[in-house]
Computed example of a mutant assay.
Amino acid sequence: MTVHPEGWRKSSRSSKTSCVEVGRTSNGAAVRDTKDRSAGYFTATGQQWAAFIDAVKSNRFD
């Protein structure tokens, strides 16, 4: 299945040296490196993306 992310936007947490963009997919989200877009992206289902966002908001990665 081919995924075509849309609506790419830069993370508000990105800095000049660490930038990521998030795009919508029909089933979740896609993430890519802003400085190397040609490297591609990875995707997550809506459930995976929600679990990731929950983990970030609850400081599980600090």
Rank of each mutant, 00 (worst) to 15 (best):
50 A>R: 13
43 T>S: 11
17 T>W: 10
11 S>R: 11
38 S>W: 07
43 T>V: 15
53 I>V: 15
58 S>K: 12
4 H>P: 08
38 S>I: 04
46 G>F: 05
37 R>H: 11
5 P>F: 03
6 E>Q: 14
14 S>K: 10
32 R>F: 08
27 N>K: 09
62 D>L: 02
37 R>W: 07
28 G>T: 09
35 K>W: 05
49 W>G: 00
48 Q>V: 03
16 K>L: 04
8 W>Y: 08
1 M>P: 12
12 S>T: 15
58 S>E: 12
56 V>M: 08
30 A>F: 08
29 A>Q: 10
43 T>Y: 06
46 G>M: 05
47 Q>F: 00
10 K>I: 15
3 V>N: 01
56 V>W: 11
51 A>T: 13
28 G>V: 11
60 R>Y: 08
57 K>Y: 10
54 D>H: 11
55 A>G: 14
55 A>Q: 02
38 S>H: 13
56 V>F: 07
15 S>R: 07
33 D>C: 01
21 E>K: 00
57 K>G: 07
43 T>M: 02
8 W>H: 11
59 N>D: 14
44 A>M: 13
3 V>K: 01
18 S>R: 13
44 A>W: 02
47 Q>S: 09
16 K>G: 14
59 N>A: 02
1 M>I: 05
43 T>L: 06
40 G>F: 01
61 F>C: 01
30 A>W: 04
